[in-house]
Design a protein around this nucleic acid. Structure first.
Length: 565
DNA sequence: ATGGGTCCT
DNA sequence: AGGACCC
């Protein structure tokens, strides 16, 4: 076959479904309060109605409207406090599980926004007429799409995407049906050949509906967008930048030469937006793995007393440690966030954060199984004193605390944790010692606390009342709490070694990433012998960590091959 | 704005 | 550590 012909045929190879839960918080609250089902309902956080059900929207209530304004529009509006996200997190996880029945290729944005790459399951349907692994059946005889279609659909694209998208519309309907059957939650869906189109087209018919777009209508859909700010990735700053250059619509974007745009907003963003303006978006669905951070925030009018800071942080930390236990992984770093009141401005000030390592003896040991809250609080207060000068008056409007790095809770002698702990010989082979003064980091007790290397910790792990002052007895442990607030080690030994490899000229990492079918394959220059000397499961753990420590350019097909933990 | 999150610089 | 973005 001619290569030109080949290029002409494979044009829209992917099939993407975007699933957007309708007014998610409001739906959850309607389930929790059935008596509010048929009433206009708003979900309130502080003085804001963050979302509302569709009945309330008929009154003109919009997202993030002030409570006063909302009540003026709809005096009978029922309000439910939605500051605690526990229930939403819960339903979000259930929805994700349902989506995973269809494909592991689910990317989540927030709690209620999901991309699914259904390319391969569509292919399965086309091959077999059904998918025995899924207990769903699709009427392949019907050539009509389910739901709405945006734009004309007379002529079929020669690449065959037409029928793929129609099958995907049936899958989307099945997904929405299963979510409704299991959870009584309604969703809207968009079906397209890329994420941009799937997301945008799904907005056209809501709630509880779905819309399909064929590639030939892509440019048309983008033209219907009134402002560039509706393009995902174009936020406030970029919008302002574009506006100041007289670029307001997608059409303005099209008229602006790429070179001119690059000078205004930067090369990467300019190229992305020029593509997007034509409905082109090659970014892949990146399966969402475990969270990179777990945090809680509390906003308020003003907090000016250290005692109140302490009590609020204590409350946040209690809930945060519960979330960490649910997650199952071991947090390694803590981050404190504050927002200081801004007097000269009407808006609140910017956030400031301070981060530090979480000393291992603050973590739940296998003996107690619980966090030492007094010491956690002492650590958080240390971070607080690093961000706020308490010798002067202060006025805070927000406090937040988060865990920001994790290690797997991997017991068992097959884990990389225990392997690295024992195999000092391997470390010397890897030759990663004394780079940039980080040589001793994480040598003795790199990860899990399950092995409990913390000798003599028994006396301090249990029964340490919250009220106990820090640093009055048990000098060694408390000194640790107070002194181990040095900045996080930049890199673990493994990471240092990996980054050293990455910067070597031939870039073996790329070779590795490009071998999806044989991920263990190495270029001859890499330390194959060393790697092969490791047990097979350790090899996997090591190679799995490579792509994340290197930097694949943001969105490309390599992401399909990068494990996501 | 709220109470979460992501990734990049 | 901050800044942009997402919901």
């Amino acid at each position: 076959m001619d290569s030109i012909e080949f290029d002409a045929i494979i044009r829209h190879p992917r099939t993407i479904i975007h699933i957007d839960v309708d007014c998610f918080y409001a739906q959850v609250e309607m389930l929790r309060h059935p008596e509010l089902q048929s009433k206009p309902l708003g979900v309130q956080q502080k003085n804001i109605v963050v979302t509302s059900n569709y009945l309330a929207r008929e009154y003109g209530i919009k997202k993030c409207m002030s409570v006063e304004e909302a009540l003026q529009l709809c005096p009978e509006l029922a309000l439910v406090n939605g500051e605690d996200l526990t229930h939403y997190r819960h339903y979000s996880a259930k929805i994700l599980k349902i989506l995973h029945r269809f494909t592991p290729l689910v990317e989540r944005l927030g709690f209620d926004d999901n991309f699914l790459d259904v390319t391969s399951i569509v292919q399965k349907y086309m091959n077999s007429g059904n998918d025995s692994e899924l207990n769903i059946s699709i009427n392949m005889e019907d050539e009509h799409p389910v739901g709405k279609v945006f734009g004309p659909s007379e002529e079929e694209c020669p690449c065959g995407c037409h029928s793929r998208l129609i099958i995907a519309s049936k899958i989307a309907a099945e997904i929405r049906e299963q979510i409704y059957k299991d959870l009584h939650i309604t969703c809207s869906a968009g079906i397209g050949h890329n994420k941009l189109l799937a997301k945008l087209v799904g907005l056209l018919h809501k709630p509880n509906q779905q819309t399909l777009i064929f590639p030939c209508s892509a440019a048309m859909l983008l033209s219907t967008i009134e402002s560039v700010s509706k393009i995902p990735g174009v936020g406030q700053k970029t919008t302002q930048l574009l506006m100041s250059n007289n670029i307001k619509t997608v059409d303005d974007l099209r008229k602006t030469p790429l070179e001119a745009l690059e000078k205004k907003i930067g090369i990467d963003l300019a190229r992305k937006l020029k593509d997007n303006a034509e409905g082109i978006d090659e970014t892949v669905v990146k399966p969402t793995g475990k969270r990179q951070s777990i945090g809680l925030e509390d906003g308020f009018k003003s907090v000016s007393l250290i005692a109140e800071v302490e009590s609020r942080l204590g409350a946040l930390l209690r809930r945060l440690t519960e979330l960490a236990m649910e997650d199952g992984r071991i947090p390694v770093a803590m981050r404190l966030t504050v927002r200081k009141h801004d007097f000269n401005k009407s808006a609140s000030g910017k956030r400031e954060t301070r981060q530090c390592a979480l000393p291992k003896h603050l973590l739940p040991s296998s003996k107690s199984g619980i966090y030492d809250h007094a010491k956690m609080l002492a650590l958080a207060m240390k971070l607080f004193h690093r961000t706020v000068d308490v010798s002067k008056p202060f006025h805070l409007t927000l406090l937040g605390v988060a865990f920001t790095k994790f290690e797997e809770r991997s017991s068992g002698k097959n884990s990389i944790t225990s392997f690295l702990r024992k195999q000092v010989a391997v470390q010397s082979v890897l030759d990663i010692s004394s780079e940039e003064g980080v040589s001793d980091i994480n040598l003795g007790s790199p990860m899990s606390v399950n092995q409990d290397s913390n000798d003599g910790s028994a006396m301090s792990t249990t029964s340490s009342p919250i009220s106990k002052p820090i640093g009055t007895n048990n000098q060694t442990v408390d000194d640790d709490v107070l002194n181990e607030i040095e900045p996080l080690p930049k890199k673990t030994r493994l990471e240092v070694w990996l980054s050293g490899r990455r910067e070597s000229p031939s870039n073996e990492m790329a070779d590795l990433r490009l071998s999806p079918s044989s991920p263990m394959q190495l270029s001859p220059k890499i330390d194959a012998a060393v790697l092969k000397s490791l047990p097979i499961d350790i090899q996997r753990e090591v190679t799995r960590s490579w792509p994340t420590t290197s930097k694949p350019k943001s969105n490309n097909i390599l992401k399909y091959f990068i494990a996501n933990k």
